[in-house]
């Protein structure tokens, strides 16, 4: 039995090898460079720990990621709820609404936001028609968040929907007949049961928002860098591979910490987190 199995398993080797050599090795190289470049030692982490610009960049990245996660969760929840409680046809249509932009170029979408949010863009043209002063949005964190959340929505909606469709639709009714008004039935029964989806979605969205490069680079300000943009600058412009490596390590530590935190929260709350990657 086991020999037969390992023979079929050979089929997985080319892909595993490609990911190992073509993905894991490069990632490992930059991580290792954080302690070897320009010379062996911990100087790059000392820079990370003491440099105020580096601090700003890290805090800003976390701040933006938290905000992006919260905003996306708040917007995705009603959308997912509508999907989960609609007929199959309506659900499929809404699914396409979520999935189409998921596969539409990130670049094109950033570009579209530039046209809309710039000084003489669509938004200010419309506002001007109502006699409202033009707003400066492009080049601010607001623009970055608008663009990021739009891209992140599917990652939040899909895990939420997959949990919500599993909730017995009679449970809120059961609560109602036992005397709970609509909002209580929702808050005490439906909402807690949908939380695993909210957590799974938030986990994915938070991790993804730590790695956004294109959107902040195009919609944000160069003076308000996030980790990925700083990493880019350090390596390609300042040729400081070590500092870039340290930023990479910091990002992966954050990713790991979030995983751990969520795992602990889920454990305490007794929530089973299903296939996290399922939504992808």
């Amino acid at each position: 039995m086991s020999t037969k199995q390992s023979r079929t398993a050979v089929l997985a080797w080319p892909a595993l090898l490609l990911v190992a050599l073509g993905f894991i090795v490069p990632v490992a190289i930059i991580l290792v460079m954080s302690v070897t470049d320009p010379q062996p030692g911990t100087q790059n982490f000392e820079w990370l720990a003491t440099n105020s610009t580096a601090h700003d960049i890290m805090w800003r990245t976390i701040y933006i990621a938290v905000l992006a996660t919260l905003i996306t969760a708040v917007l995705a929840y009603p959308f997912a709820y509508l999907m989960a409680t609609s007929s199959t046809l309506v659900r499929s249509i809404l699914m396409v609404v979520v999935l189409l932009p998921f596969w539409t170029s990130m670049m094109v979408r950033a570009f579209a936001w530039i046209i809309i949010l710039q000084k003489n863009g669509l938004l200010n043209t419309v506002l001007g028609a109502f006699g409202i002063e033009p707003l400066t949005i492009l080049g601010t964190n607001t623009a970055v968040l608008i663009g990021m959340c739009q891209i992140l929505m599917p990652f939040m909606v899909l895990p939420m929907v997959s949990v919500m469709v599993g909730i017995d639709s009679r449970l809120p009714l059961a609560a109602r007949i036992m005397g709970a008004p609509k909002w209580k039935a929702f808050l005490q029964v439906y909402f807690p049961l949908s939380l695993p989806g909210v957590f799974a979605g938030s986990l994915i969205v938070f991790i993804l928002s730590l790695g956004f490069y294109v959107t902040p680079a195009l919609l944000g300000s160069p003076r308000q860098q996030l980790i990925p943009n700083a990493l880019f600058t350090q390596v390609l412009e300042l040729l400081s591979w070590g500092k870039g490596g340290a930023l990479a390590v910091a990002t992966l530590v954050m990713v790991g910490a979030v995983f751990l935190l969520l795992f602990l929260v889920a454990k305490v709350m007794g929530i089973k987190i299903g296939k996290i990657g399922g939504g992808l």
């Binding site: 017995d168 009679r170 449970l171 009714l173 059961a174 609560a175 109602r176 007949i177 036992m178 005397g179 709970a180 008004p181 609509k182 039935a185 005490q188 029964v189 807690p192 049961l193 007794g270």
Partner: peptide
């Protein structure tokens, strides 16, 4: 619904899966 003062046993029970037995009955 919630002001009709009715008790109900559902097909397939519809127990709240996130509450203990006690919390279910207390609800």
């Amino acid at each position: 619904i919630h002001r009709r003062n009715i008790g109900m046993v559902f097909q397939g029970y519809a127990l709240f899966p996130h509450m203990t037995v006690e919390k279910n009955v207390e609800y």
